[in-house]
Every structure is written in structure tokens, then in C-alpha cells.
Design a protein around this nucleic acid. Structure first.
Lengths: 176, 176
DNA sequence: CGCGCGATTGAGTAATTTCAAATCTAGTGG
DNA sequence: CCACTAGATTTGAAATTACTCAATCGCGCG
């Protein structure tokens, strides 16, 4: 997507910090001050909103090679509304907003890179919106396992239900 | 968001083209080759997907000061999956991908600007996803008119229903 | 064995859809 | 000013879908 020389690569790497988390651990809790965006090296995380009755609603899963954080809180330097938690042991490179800005202004290629990533994220979100508009529970489920066959092996179905917006009972009954 | 000198402004403006459309006119039709992204100067458009049975599903509305196109088709230079049509007479500045790239490489501020816009779009899409996860038809509707009170005056309710993902009859019955 | 977790099943209830018909409203021509 | 029409909105009633609450099942592990 973007090619870097060796020295550019070193420059970039210097802005990141390696952070590791264990399964079930929270990377961000709603209410936290969000300092970092996380690049997932390995593992699997969920970004979710928890409502008054403590029910979780999963906005997205993120795995290898994806960037994740509460973007609104990160860029606007507000407190997190979402939480980010690990579904597996997870290794990340974290990037503070300060370093993000340094990276962008120091190396135009990186600003371009982040733009491409953000666009990809936006397009992905639109696809998800479309699936809510066009598809019922079964079609959304089939859609999901087609696009991410691995997920079914990596997370319990009850968790998939929180992503699909159906109850775990309904999801279970789709098996027929 | 980004401050430009007069000469920078002229440079930027030179990459755009003024295009006007009338109410009900299509700016993009599914299957088209998508050359431009459109900055809405005035008016109102809908970005939507039409399924096999010719039912429309509105992915987003765009009005003054927003950017809209089939982003996937635009950036990847593929044929449009979505259509973009006017709900009002609409004036736009169009920007070809070629000029977009020239703009970004010629003026880093602009790449930064587009990054901020893309992030805002991504965050907006996430909010919309969340509303499908957390809210029933009524709550989604109230959410929408809170966030965009103007829409109710500018589009028929049947069109709002296509955005909210409910039948127009159900939307009508929410009035009680 | 017995616990804990995930998945399934059953039954009743609530929300939403579909199809059909009735109303309402703004704009047009007479 | 009135009648007429097209589009938008509402209403009714039956059918469907998904939800909740509760109980049960299956299985791996100390």
C-alpha cells in the first residue's frame, strides 16, 4: 500500500509502542481517556457499547493487521464511549495521537496510508449498514461467516449474536 | 479545519468542476463508472442500494458541506454498486480521482483535510451501526430527527423509512 | 462425579411486516 | 372558487419474525 525505505521504516517504528493484553482484558474502558490507536499484530478484539442494562453491542471485531480504538474519543480527545476488550491474547502496536500527528507531518506517505485505511474502514461500515437494511438475521449471519469464516471458530456464537444484532436464541435457531 | 492562503485556495479550486442536478436526477447510477466525488454546495441527495426487487435501501443522506459518492467504486475505480440521486435541486463541486491525487500530493494540508473528513464519515457510520444494534424503530426515528431536524421537512416519510430500515406503515404508526 | 460454560429448545409475547383500503393534501385546469 | 388527480400518509387485520424467560442438553475438566 505504501513503500518505505529502511530509514523511513525505522522512523515510523520509533513512534509505536508494543503493548500486549490477555484474553478478556480491557484495552479501553468506556469513560477512559483514550490516548492510543492500536494496530493489532495478533489476536482478536471487540469494540462495543454497553447500555444501561449492561448489555453489550459489538460495533466491530478487529484482528490481525487492523487498526482499532474509540476513534471519536481518540481524535477529539474525549472520554471513551465504547470499550475495547480482548477475545484472545492480543499483541498490538500502540500509537499516541501526538505521535500520529508527528508521523503524518513528518512523512506524507504515512498520512496517505492512514487516509487509505480510514477510507477502507468507512467502506466497511457502509457495507455493514447495508446488511442491516437489506438482510434479515439469517442473511446477515451467512454474510458474516462468508466474509470472515475464521470468526466462527474463534468466538462463541453468543458473541456473534451481539455483533449481528439478534438474540443468541434466534441465532441458534438459524442452524436449521 | 484547514486554513489556506489565497493562492492555495485558487490552486485547490482549480481542481474542481461545478455540476448542477435537478430533483430526482441521478448523479450516479449503479453500474456506472464513477469518476468523481461530489462536494454538495446546496441541495440534498440520497446514496442507496437497489435490490433485485427494485426496493431501495438508503445508505446515507448528504447535504450542504458533505462529500458523497460510491467511495468503493471511486477509489478502486470499479463500477458503482450504489446509486446517488437528488431529493432536491443540487449544486456540487465534483473532483475526479486524478485531481484528488494531484491535490493530495500537491498540498499536504489537503490530504490532511480529506483524512479528517474520512474519519468523520467513519465515526458517523459507526453511530449508525450502533443505532441498529441498540434501538428499535421508534428510537432510531427519534434519534434521526434529533440529529437532523431539517430532514423531516425536506423528505417524505416514506423516504426516511428507507433510511431507517422500517416499512413506511410502521414509521407512520410511530406517531402515537 | 459435578460444576461451568456454551448451545439448544419450548412456549408465550411483542414488534414489525405485508397487503389492502381509506384519507389527506397540494397543485392544476376549468 | 371548485372539482379532480397524483402523491403521501394513515389505518386495519392477518401473518411473520424475533424477543424474552425458562428449562434442558452437551461437554470438557478438576
Amino acid at each position: 500500500m505504501v513503500k518505505l525505505t529502511d530509514e523511513e521504516f525505522d522512523f515510523v517504528i520509533g513512534h509505536f509502542e508494543l503493548k500486549s493484553f490477555k484474553k478478556t482484558q480491557f484495552i479501553i474502558q468506556a469513560g477512559d481517556h483514550v490516548k492510543d490507536v492500536f494496530f493489532i499484530l495478533s489476536g482478536l478484539v471487540k469494540l462495543f457499547y454497553m447500555n444501561e442494562s449492561a448489555k453489550q453491542h459489538i460495533v466491530s471485531f478487529a484482528m490481525e493487521d487492523w487498526w482499532e480504538t474509540d476513534f471519536n474519543a481518540y481524535y477529539a480527545q474525549r472520554r471513551a464511549v465504547f470499550s475495547l476488550a480482548c477475545l484472545e491474547n492480543t499483541e498490538t502496536y500502540s500509537l499516541s495521537l501526538e505521535n500520529f500527528n508527528k508521523l503524518c507531518s513528518g512523512l506524507q506517505k504515512m498520512e496517505h496510508f492512514f487516509l487509505m485505511k480510514s477510507i477502507a474502514g468507512h467502506i466497511g461500515s457502509q457495507e455493514r449498514i447495508l446488511s442491516f437494511l437489506t438482510s434479515d438475521a439469517r442473511a446477515r449471519y451467512e454474510n458474516l461467516i462468508n466474509k470472515s469464516p475464521g470468526l466462527l471458530q474463534r468466538v462463541p456464537k453468543a458473541t456473534l449474536a451481539l455483533y449481528l444484532g439478534v438474540s443468541r436464541e434466534t441465532l441458534s435457531r438459524l442452524g436449521s
